[in-house]
């Protein structure tokens, strides 16, 4: 095996198209290196380290779109003013990924491409209606986030391509969003359940509701039925309870070493109710 460290995107894409399946893209390494050591990824694979391609990192905002480079670290997301102002759920999610050492090198691109069922950045990305910008040697294409997460550790990223970053439409005024995570301890937790909720409100009514979750199905997902139930409401408790119930029908949690399926089910509903409560308070909805 080899460790390849291209300095430019073109160089990286060239290597990737030439080598195909035996080359694993590596950014911060906080997932990939562990998976190699524990035998979840073959040790024979060569590593394509893209951490040196510095123009894939960073956040920018123009023309109503916020662009987040794939190599933007969790730590950067936590303190970037564009993110904390416009996409606070991203910053909140990033702040829960491991400890400082993980946040400092782990990247949003790695978190999304690794596609753990518990990927913390996935719910905010889904709730924000983000688009994944991916590229092979033939140039970039765009994949809606909802079509990106296919199954446990499986994305629709085509072979030979790299995630360059994501594009997020700037949220409308009067939008509240948050990432609410349940873990056992106060930090360092792989989510038992993670919920990104976003409510855009016009005249004290929810115009659009977005709910997305991780750790309750093989892949992170949007909770469409829950969203539909909330749309047009004032986030009153009756509607929210009903939405929480409907949302719970959309998930397929399992029992594992971190939590029981029944607790996860319970938590999805309760987190939706908590989100609605926080949103009402924050948006001054009475």
């Amino acid at each position: 095996m080899q460790f390849l460290a291209p300095r430019t995107l073109d160089e990286a894409l060239g290597m990737l198209s030439g080598r195909g399946g035996d080359l694993r893209v590596l950014a911060g390494g906080t997932d990939v290196m562990i998976q190699r050591m524990t035998g979840q990824l073959p040790r024979s694979e060569s590593l394509l380290y893209i951490g040196g391609i510095t123009d894939l990192a960073g956040v920018s905002r123009s023309d109503g779109t916020i662009r987040i480079g794939a190599l933007t670290t969790h730590r950067d997301l936590c303190c970037d003013p564009v993110i904390t102002t416009h996409l606070p759920s991203f910053a909140e999610a990033a702040a829960t990924v491991g400890g400082w050492q993980t946040q400092a090198v782990g990247t949003i691109g790695g978190n999304l491409c690794n596609a753990s069922p518990a990927a913390d950045l996935a719910p905010p990305v889904l709730a924000a209606g983000a688009v994944m910008v991916v590229s092979g040697v033939d140039g970039p294409t765009r994949i809606p986030a909802e079509r990106f997460f296919v199954d446990r550790r499986l994305t629709s990223l085509p072979e030979g391509q790299i995630l360059l970053g994501i594009e997020v439409p700037e949220p409308p005024a009067n939008t509240w969003e948050s990432y609410l995570k349940v873990g056992r301890r106060g930090a360092m937790e792989v989510a038992q359940v993670g919920l990104a909720a976003r409510f855009s409100v016009v005249d004290n009514r929810v115009e659009t509701a977005r709910l997305a979750v991780c750790s309750v199905a093989p892949a992170p997902l949007r909770l469409h039925r829950g969203e539909e139930a909330l749309a047009g409401s004032t986030l009153d408790s009756g509607t929210v309870s009903a939405a929480a119930r409907r949302a719970t029908e959309e998930i397929s949690p399992i029992d594992d070493q971190r939590a029981s399926a029944s607790y996860r089910r319970m938590m999805v509903g309760r987190l939706i109710m908590k989100a609605a409560r926080l949103a009402r308070r924050s948006l001054g909805m009475g």
Binding site: F3, A5, L26, G29, M33, Y49, W100, Q101, A104, V105
Partner: peptide
């Protein structure tokens, strides 16, 4: 930056 050296590839520290 503090990093966990047990999972940090040496060659990424070039």
């Amino acid at each position: 930056t503090p990093v966990h050296s047990c999972i940090f590839p040496s060659l990424a520290a070039a």
